[in-house]
Design a protein around this nucleic acid. Sequence first.
RNA 1: GACGGCGUAGUUCAGUCGGUUAGAAUGCCAGAUUGUGAUUCUGGAGGUCGUGGGUUCGAUCCCCAUCGCUGUCCCCA
Length: 452
Amino acid sequence: MKPSIPRGTRDFGPAQMSKRNFIFDAIRKVYQRYGFQQLETPTMENLSVLTGKYGDEGDQLLFKVLNSGDFAKDLTAEMTNQGYKKMLPAIAEKGLRYDLTVPFARYVVMNRGELQMPFKRYQIQPVWRADRPQKGRYREFYQCDADVVGTDSLICEAEIVLMIHEVFRNLGVNDFTVKINNRKILSGIAEVIGVPGQETALCVAIDKLGKIGQQKVEEELSERGFLADTILKLQPVFSLGKDQNQLLTDLKTWLKDSETGLAGIAELEKVMQYVAHFGLQDPRVQVDITLARGLSYYTGAIFEVKANGVQIGSVAGGGRYDNLTGAFGLPGVSGVGISFGVDRIYDVMDELGVFPDNQTASTKVMITNFDATAEVFGLGVLKKLRDAGINAEIYPEAVKIKKQFEYADRKQIPFVLIIGSEEIETGNLALKNLQTGQQRPLRLEEILAELA
RNA sequence: GACGGCGUAGUUCAGUCGGUUAGAAUGCCAGAUUGUGAUUCUGGAGGUCGUGGGUUCGAUCCCCAUCGCUGUCCCCA
């Protein structure tokens, strides 16, 4: 049997894990500093929680978990004949989580009596999608979400902008753009061009502007049944936005007859004001009215972060949703959140070469193992090293010293503590620095001071 | 769902216009150096050439099928 892992999944070795943890730690630290509390939810959710939340396509991308035991016991011939969609409820009642937002919404509804609102939670866990893997797209990947529910204060949006800046700057990724838009502006545009309520179809096409260009977007809109006259009225979308200062002014003029549109502009301005009040240094925020993002549940602000100079899609995204918990019987709870894509951030940082060195080294000193006597002596020393807070290990077998040194070298352990009969006798232990090659006889107290 | 590329040593890859004994680098093991790594030198192990079938005197190579990996489009964040 040749071992293998399911397609679209990956192993992360020690070297990768230390880099990934560097990213996780940076995000977690910022989340905590902004007052978010951690939540974890089960890997599996009941399918009733998951289905219908991500559209028809989304339902297909859910990993379903076969019922335990005789999963086919409730199957009837009739179901079998009607195809897999009819069989599904009989053989699977659980599925793997598809994102962190829906499980969060479920949690909020289930614990509504207990939660102190506004509730600020962060969640760092893997999600699964039965998608076809491609570059930068996996079947198992991590999301790092932070959401605030129970308030529609635009301070939350502003804080998200701040957190994005902190996270990327802490990671050493300094050239990035935070694109921001508002769903109400998109609704306003739909109203003004005479297709109110059709902004979803509009968004799907407009969202691709940066990717496929104006002409293709117009073609796609045409295919989706938008009239030539309507598309003509849409022209300001393509021409606006070159000058950030002028953009909102022009937009107000264009959307002057749409109450919703003007509300969206006002919200956006307010968020920008808050960001200014925070005194954020060198803000990288850019209003982009073509930013739509796929999710249909966004109702207010929409965010997306791009790392500049790297050919990788967005590295973080989020927005405000007014009624996420409505599907679980709790309407009127507004929320806003952000999600960082660790896997893509990893790729960006790797490409930019901004990971700090020496992330792999975890053991600081290794004690050699010559024989039974030295081993016993070494164990006592080892305990003292560890008690002093020094990451240390002893080579577990009395094999050839050459092998032991090779082990330390490969594991990038910076120091080897050589303890043989001579050292035990004199009490001067030989500490070798593998980077410089230097070796000195030292008392244990001196070693503890040196390595601490 | 549509189309393309690739499956050869642990790993990364050569290779053969179809020819008898399939190579390199690296890694691994051993020795030079039985108390000193990363360098150097020497030797060694390691392959059903993805799987099944076909064509052929002969297939790792050509054909078909199948499985797996990977990429683009669609889709999706």
